[in-house]
Computed example of a mutant assay.
Amino acid sequence: MQKYFLCHYDALSEGQSKGFSLGDNTTGTDNVFAVMKGGEIYVYSNICPHRGINLDWQKDQFLDPDGALIQCASHGALFLIETGECIAGPCSGDALTPVPVEYAQDGLYVLMPE
Rank of each mutant, 00 (worst) to 15 (best):
G39D: 06
C86M: 00
Q2I: 02
P98T: 04
P113A: 04
A104D: 06
G93Y: 08
N46I: 08
R51T: 11
M36Y: 08
Q16M: 08
L108N: 05
V32L: 07
F33N: 04
D60Y: 04
N54C: 15
D94H: 13
G76S: 02
G19S: 09
D66N: 12
Y103A: 12
C72L: 13
G15S: 09
I81W: 07
I70P: 02
I81M: 15
P100F: 02
L63T: 10
I70Q: 07
Y42Q: 08
A88N: 12
Y109Q: 07
L63Y: 06
L22Y: 12
D94M: 09
P98A: 05
L111V: 09
V99G: 07
T26H: 05
M1F: 05
K59V: 15
W57F: 15
N25D: 14
Y4I: 03
A73V: 08
Y44N: 12
P49F: 13
H75G: 01
G19V: 06
T83H: 13
T29M: 00
F5D: 06
K37N: 10
T27K: 08
K59C: 15
G84M: 13
D10H: 10
I53K: 14
G89D: 11
S21F: 04
V101M: 11
Q105I: 01
K3C: 05
E85I: 11
T27S: 15
T29A: 04
N31C: 03
Y44F: 15
E102A: 06
P90T: 02
